[in-house]
Nucleic acid binder design. Sequence first.
DNA 1: CCAAGTGGCTAGTGTCAATAGCCAAATTGA
DNA 2: TCAATTTGGCTATTGACACTAGCCACTTGG
Lengths: 203, 203
Amino acid sequence: MQQNSTSPPRRGLTRDRVAEEAALLADEVGLGKLTLTALADRLGVRQPSLYKHIDSMAGLHRDIAVHAKRELGEVLARASVGRSGADAITAMSHSYRDWAVKHPARYEASNLMPAADDVEDAAVSLAAIQVIADVLTAYELDGDDAVDAIRAFRSTLHGFVSYESAGAFAWSANVDRSFGRLVNGFIVALAQWKSSPAKHPGL
Amino acid sequence: MQQNSTSPPRRGLTRDRVAEEAALLADEVGLGKLTLTALADRLGVRQPSLYKHIDSMAGLHRDIAVHAKRELGEVLARASVGRSGADAITAMSHSYRDWAVKHPARYEASNLMPAADDVEDAAVSLAAIQVIADVLTAYELDGDDAVDAIRAFRSTLHGFVSYESAGAFAWSANVDRSFGRLVNGFIVALAQWKSSPAKHPGL
DNA sequence: CCAAGTGGCTAGTGTCAATAGCCAAATTGA
DNA sequence: TCAATTTGGCTATTGACACTAGCCACTTGG
């Protein structure tokens, strides 16, 4: 049958489709400036219609985060496959940075913590971290040594990348070179990981 | 004269006073959740009255940032005075972390970039970074070596602290110890800084 | 002492996220 | 095949927010 003159034509929206377009838009305007009206416009739909596919703005951020974590995990896995040790760390680091700089809002979302009861989010978060953990295993670290190394590696990459995305490296010196040396520095430190215990600050 | 029954009593508000109370409130509720209505309530004033002291929400964030950068710069300077080399780096790192964790919104604000024409903001930003630069000078780094080291140090601290504030270190392992080892790792890397050139990722 | 400037105020506006409730399109199953 | 149910659009509205306009009393300085 032909549709009535005043009928709402159905777009083929799904929760995934909405999250994907949201990620694209957020990478353009910034995660914090993503609005449902702008997103609805892109999807050819009115703003309230989005609520058929999302719970809330926070829920949309969570959906973007889950997609992003999965994507980042795959990027890291692809970079490290077939490599080990310092080679794998270098490759993984550069892939991490490239992906993060290219998709700043997705990257920001990928660092959102899962809600306590969100098993899917927790799973993709863990999967991404597991790639890092597997690579660091080549240094025969375990227990607290391994946890400390993983935390150090994540911190190192995250700090650099978030400063870079924020435009915080103002001086003219080459940012690529700075990143390369940061990664090399981490590898140097990792080689002596077990023999460099933590000290507490002097009084 | 006695005031009329319907007269607006004057509070002693200033731009600084507003920014300080805003920083206190933001550290409680989060920088992104700071609202002018809540801030006005705290100051015993109606929301539009704040515009006599601030330009806009973004302007208030900037004011918080300037205060925060000054505060952080002083904290770092105090930590490093009378120390040098690895000792100074360790002391400065722990002070940085302590301050950042204690004042999460101020810390977030301290990482906002100054507007291009904002000389006061640029000055306090530079002053804080200069403390770091001075400490790293003990390693006789200059030019690109020094810039790379400063970027690496800032990235390392910022990454750890922002993950810690976000609650991203979920595993039970001791976070203090992880931080100590991260700092030690940086010091180890710094000792070999000149001899570890950057490599580009393999193909 | 009075004229100018300052710092409150009330009363709005526009932009958001979010809700309520309607109706046609799609789907399901007898 | 076709009726019942579910789904996915829609309009209209609310409430929280930043921000503006314009008023008036208090302060200050010549």
